[in-house]
């Protein structure tokens, strides 16, 4: 006991550390790398400020009617192509997991073909459809000249939407597969038909998994619509090009266009967070944050 007591006095002073001064760990590597990056950034800013950019042109065209009109057309094309992409994506994904082997193989073939060719190429195929089909329609009922229908808007919408559908269908399929088999069974035992089960029980739960990648795809689509400039659809990049062909201020106009892309993408990112929060109701993560 006496030895134990002797030990404990030594120990006590050893364990009394509350009054000592705490010296934080020094992050020398961190400090150096931060300094290097800041110097590089300043160099970049300086390069732009002394570079031959006429900032007055940027501000002059930032709110020019032609640019804003192009911006609106970009947004319209984004919405139109994504609506087609999502509708096709849902339909193709359901075909793929349906028990019907014909539908399933058609779905697999669709994804294979439309994911297999560049979007730009597909746009050009639709735009030039008149070369092989001069007229479209049902013979005897109605018929149109293909060049009248296949406007730049329609060609871009079909090209972007249909190729997007191939990607979105994989997102939807992964969402459907993420829903527990017990949910399908519970829905069946309360007498739901296949369609009602998908709409009321399965898709709302699949959405939680699908929203982040689909948000990603919407943001990708905003920028992908710039491909439509190639077939003369007057979206924002096309209109910026039209201006710089006339005034030769190439970089200034490109900066104007990139400013607006950045604005749209920033707004969409905020919107995506809101939608995610809605579909996460009843899941653990949202309970934790509430």
């Amino acid at each position: 006991m006496s030895t134990a007591d002797g030990m404990s006095t030594v120990d006590r002073s050893k364990y009394e550390i509350a009054h000592l001064k705490l010296v934080p760990k020094r992050h020398i590597g961190r400090t150096i790398s931060a300094a290097v990056v800041i110097v590089l950034l300043l160099a970049l800013v300086r390069a732009f400020s002394v570079g031959q950019i006429e900032w007055s042109y940027v501000s002059q065209f930032l709110f020019a009617p032609v640019i804003l009109e192009g911006l609106v057309n970009t947004l319209i094309m984004t919405v139109a192509a994504m609506v087609i992409g999502i509708v096709l994506g849902v339909v193709i994904a359901i075909m793929r997991i349906s028990g019907n082997p014909v539908l399933s193989w058609i779905a697999i073939g669709y994804v294979w073909i439309f994911r297999g060719a560049p979007a730009l190429l597909q746009l050009m195929l639709w735009f030039n459809l008149a070369l092989i089909f001069p007229t479209l329609g049902i013979p005897g009922l109605f018929e149109f000249r293909t060049v009248d229908i296949m406007t730049p808007f329609v060609a871009a919408m079909l090209g972007l939407g249909i190729s997007q559908g191939a990607y979105t269908s994989e997102v939807v399929r992964s969402g459907l597969l993420s829903v527990d088999a017990g949910q399908y069974e519970a829905a069946r035992t309360i007498g739901m038909t296949q369609r009602k089960m998908l709409r009321r029980i399965v898709l709302p739960q699949a959405m939680r998994v699908m929203v982040p990648p689909i948000g990603n795809e919407v943001i990708g689509m905003v920028k992908l619509t710039s491909l439509a400039s190639v077939i003369q659809y007057s979206e924002i990049l096309h209109n910026a090009q039209v201006i710089y062909y006339a005034n030769t201020r190439v970089l200034e106009l490109l900066l104007v266009a990139s400013f607006w892309y950045l604005v749209v993408v920033s707004i969409l990112s905020v919107g995506q967070q809101r939608i995610e929060r809605y579909f996460a109701r009843g899941s653990k993560s949202i309970q934790a944050s509430m």
């Binding site: 069974e185 069946r188 035992t189 007498g191 029980i201 709302p204 109701r281």
Partner: peptide, 23 residues
């Protein structure tokens, strides 16, 4: 499918893993 759903309406089921709709 619709007729089978109609037959199932009158038969309740309780599962081992509850299978409540989480949303």
């Amino acid at each position: 499918d619709a007729e089978i759903s109609r037959q199932r309406r009158r038969i309740g089921m309780v599962f081992q893993r509850f299978n409540l709709f989480p949303h």
